[in-house]
């Protein structure tokens, strides 16, 4: 090819940008699961359902105006957070720390909740209407690109930054990080682990719900949304090293690029990259990760 320099990467600019949007979406969705896993030590298989709640809310409420977006965001976040608190309540009487029991319980909730969502919103994948002002496309470096995705990248980056600041700087964030490192010590300080667990699951639900509403035009609500988001989030959480926000963000962006740029560059290998990366990272770090897991 004669094309050199910027022209060679040109065809891959749009997939790369898509990858950033996808990665940030997965990050916001997966950060809730990081809290569940790292802080509350809960194997939450219902996490995808929390995202689906947000997605269906967006599909039901969005009508092309800004007010509906704000309303959908508020309702979706509240509903998903409430579902998270419900999950925490269900988990409380069960012996904590046994992942298989948690898997049984949360998978049951995911099945039942998914069925209720399908019963309430119908078995077909609903159409999501973004605000009319963002429905068109804008020109990025000579290419047309969906305006909504561009705005989404900005919004998701803001959410991620806010999340980072909350976890780093606020007392609640410090308690959460302390609970990752030493739950017994936090309990000794007079903070109830049950309340931390409820708070963490509520926060996880809120994050997943926000991701579901805002990301509905990217990973739309449907019957297999919950599974897709759960698997993606698990991969991101594992690749990100469990409990590290920066690691999770990097992993999420990598996953986003694999799913978009990878498909454009290596169409035959890309579908395998996701889980191959996960298996390889886990196997290589099996011993180190095992000790880490125990301490967190």
């Amino acid at each position: 090819m004669v094309a050199a320099g910027p022209n060679r990467i040109d065809p891959y600019l749009i997939p790369a940008l898509d990858g950033v949007a996808y990665g940030l979406l997965v990050f916001v969705a997966a950060s809730g699961l990081v809290f569940c896993f790292g802080v509350a030590n809960i194997l939450n298989l219902a996490h995808g359902m929390l995202y689906a709640i947000g997605g269906y809310t967006a599909a039901a409420l969005l009508d092309g105006g800004w007010a509906s977006l704000a309303l959908a965001l508020a309702v979706g976040v509240l509903a998903a957070a409430a579902a998270g608190v419900l999950l925490a309540g269900l988990l409380t009487p069960v012996a904590t720390g046994n992942h298989l029991t948690q898997a049984l319980l949360t998978f049951g909730v995911a099945l039942a909740g998914g069925s209720l969502l399908v019963a309430g919103f119908g078995p077909d994948d609903p159409r999501v209407r973004v605000p009319a002002a963002l429905d068109g496309s804008v020109v990025v470096a000579g290419h047309r690109y969906a305006a909504y995705r561009l705005v989404f990248i900005v919004v998701a980056a803001v959410i991620s930054a806010a999340l980072y600041l909350v976890v780093r700087r606020t007392r609640a964030g410090m308690l959460v990080r302390a609970a990752v490192d030493d739950p017994e010590m936090v309990a000794c300080m007079g903070v109830s682990p049950t309340r931390i667990r409820a708070g963490v699951l509520a926060a996880a639900g809120a994050l997943a719900g926000a991701a579901g509403v805002l990301g509905a035009p990217i990973i739309g609500p449907g019957t297999d949304t919950a599974d897709t988001v759960l698997l993606l989030s698990l991969v991101v959480v594992v690749l990100g090293g469990l409990g590290s926000m920066a690691g999770t963000l990097l992993a999420a962006l990598a996953i986003g690029e694999i799913q978009t740029l990878g498909v454009a560059l290596l169409p035959s290998a890309a579908p395998f990259l996701l889980f191959a990366a996960m298996a390889a990272v886990l196997a290589v770090r099996a011993r180190g990760l095992a000790t880490r897991w125990r301490t967190t």
Binding site: L231, L234, A276, L282, A283
Partner: peptide, 21 residues
């Protein structure tokens, strides 16, 4: 080789990845 050194929930994750692959 993937699972022999891993234990517990990590095996769960590795085998999940293998199944999906």
């Amino acid at each position: 080789p993937l699972v022999v050194h891993a234990r517990g929930v990590i095996v769960l994750m590795i085998t999940l990845a293998v199944g999906e692959l």
